[in-house]
Design a protein around this nucleic acid. Sequence first.
DNA 1: CATGAATGAGCGTTCATTCAT
DNA 2: TATGAATGAACGCTCATTCAT
Lengths: 188, 188, 188, 188
Amino acid sequence: MRTKDYDKQHRIKEALIRVTLQEGMSGASISKIAREAGVSPATIYVYYDSKEAMLADIFAEYSHQSYHYLMDRVDPQMAAADLIDAIVRGYYAYSTEHEEVFSFVEQCSRCPTLSEQVSEQECCCEIFDLFHTYQDRGLIRRCSDASLAAVLFAPVRFLANNSCLQAADPDAQLSELVQMLQQLLCRG
Amino acid sequence: MRTKDYDKQHRIKEALIRVTLQEGMSGASISKIAREAGVSPATIYVYYDSKEAMLADIFAEYSHQSYHYLMDRVDPQMAAADLIDAIVRGYYAYSTEHEEVFSFVEQCSRCPTLSEQVSEQECCCEIFDLFHTYQDRGLIRRCSDASLAAVLFAPVRFLANNSCLQAADPDAQLSELVQMLQQLLCRG
Amino acid sequence: MRTKDYDKQHRIKEALIRVTLQEGMSGASISKIAREAGVSPATIYVYYDSKEAMLADIFAEYSHQSYHYLMDRVDPQMAAADLIDAIVRGYYAYSTEHEEVFSFVEQCSRCPTLSEQVSEQECCCEIFDLFHTYQDRGLIRRCSDASLAAVLFAPVRFLANNSCLQAADPDAQLSELVQMLQQLLCRG
Amino acid sequence: MRTKDYDKQHRIKEALIRVTLQEGMSGASISKIAREAGVSPATIYVYYDSKEAMLADIFAEYSHQSYHYLMDRVDPQMAAADLIDAIVRGYYAYSTEHEEVFSFVEQCSRCPTLSEQVSEQECCCEIFDLFHTYQDRGLIRRCSDASLAAVLFAPVRFLANNSCLQAADPDAQLSELVQMLQQLLCRG
DNA sequence: CATGAATGAGCGTTCATTCAT
DNA sequence: TATGAATGAACGCTCATTCAT
């Protein structure tokens, strides 16, 4: 019985992602999501208090998922250059492997109401802590967390979102970016 | 015959910006926009064929505006470092001076249907041409346009969007970013 | 789960008929129908996919009803003259006993989109079959089905629709028509 | 100048007919008619007080037109059989030669509000007078005007409206009907 | 827990009509 | 006379949510 409930909630999550990808944020209505998930509209309200709460909840969950995906690919023993390589390529890999989820999270993060509730900073403290150790050891350039996040995450997100703009070879494109960021950030 | 009242159209544009800022993209309904602009809902259809067309039109207009704002602050005689400084600070200045418009454009650019119609690439070719001349003269690092755009625009946009994340001094923050990008991109 | 309230659907049908009678086909809007039926506009869409579908569905239903009303009053043993009498008077009786429904069906049958969906021919094959047996037995004049329908149904419909045109005595009027059609069609 | 005005009003009439044929009575909005006629919506109100008045006016005009078309094809010297032949075939010919106008008039005549204003009886008195002379001379069967109209006009209208129902040969169909009505109505 | 029925509010859009030129 | 601009009201329909089972 427990399994079944979990199943239903899971199908709702997947349906939200799918509908959002196909019809955009504003096209993702409760009834469409319910239809896609194969449940009744009312069932959604068994698991979530409101549509807003559902969006915030699922957005938060998948935000963390992408973050953990990233964390799994780094470890504190890495050389600084490898760390940057892992993060940039990892982030990009996530955007292609989980294209639907990535797109959903991107769309949510542009919605003021939602991103207020899911602070990006909060869930990223671990990775900043990691960078601080590298900075303390003089392996990575000292700069504010904001600058670090700005140059480390924003460009790769930019490439992932505008993949159509890229030249024929996305891999070479990515390598170039990695190399630039290594030069910018690595010390010693 | 009554002549078209372009002040009215301007009020519609401003109303769209304002309502979108307050209620988000999905909260910006025709009737709310009309009320905010002090016109009848039907009047909006005198100036635009549909809501979709209105969004695309106004999005395009303000996209170009921000781009021209930027172009006015650079000239081909500048030193490479000054060029980067002008672009980064100019972009940021625009985001604070035209906070509402900037936020509106950002939201539109995340909406797939809209950003397809307003190609960012197209309106940016002038600035890329400018960079090519610097690259040809060996003043700026050779790299793909995509990488250039990624490191030049995305980070400052990131900071502008997450201004809440920054430390007490946004000016210092910006200076740090400028310095990093100069080191990364300037040659000779 | 709430069960479907078919009384509600019935009220919708009656409301459609009533509103159409009072305000004509083009005055029969969803909101007026809903108000007349005592339900929410949205409720109508629980029972019908669209306004078009609702009209077609209810039109078809009442078309069949009038046809069955007629079929109940004839039987294959009747003399030819009685058959014609039964049909003409039956049709007319229906138009007065179910005045509202009759008027609604008449209006629908003049709307091209609707009458395409509800083929009159289809539901009338039984009565044509009946006539064929009379014709085969030499009791009724041989002629095409189209001619038969034209002289049998159109005139009485004409009288029913233009009841205002008639003289003081509609019964005498009807008798005259019956007699004329009997002379025209009966053989032997 | 006079010519031009007349032209404009005429174009409005034709536009109404055309739009009604293509989009049905309920699709014939002022703005569509104006667009089709190549005038401004406001111009329509120069010639007609309201949409209702415009419909009534044009409906009346074309009703008379079809009636005069018919009257031109009969003359008091005809044999009774020829008179009936002329009327039935004339009416049918009109429906095919002026298909759009015929369809428009038919649709109007089913709209209660309109047909109240344009009494059919009124414009038909001439033809009834003609029939009375035939009846007085014993050439045509004595019956009420209503019966006469019912059997003379309704069947041919029925055939004209349901031309799709007819067999391969509409001409033969029409001949059959003419023959039947001659038998029914002609005396001596 | 799970549901389809039911709904008031609101959606984007078009309407018949009037206004100002 | 003739017009495009302007509009409040209404259109068909969908929304997020609650109800009754």
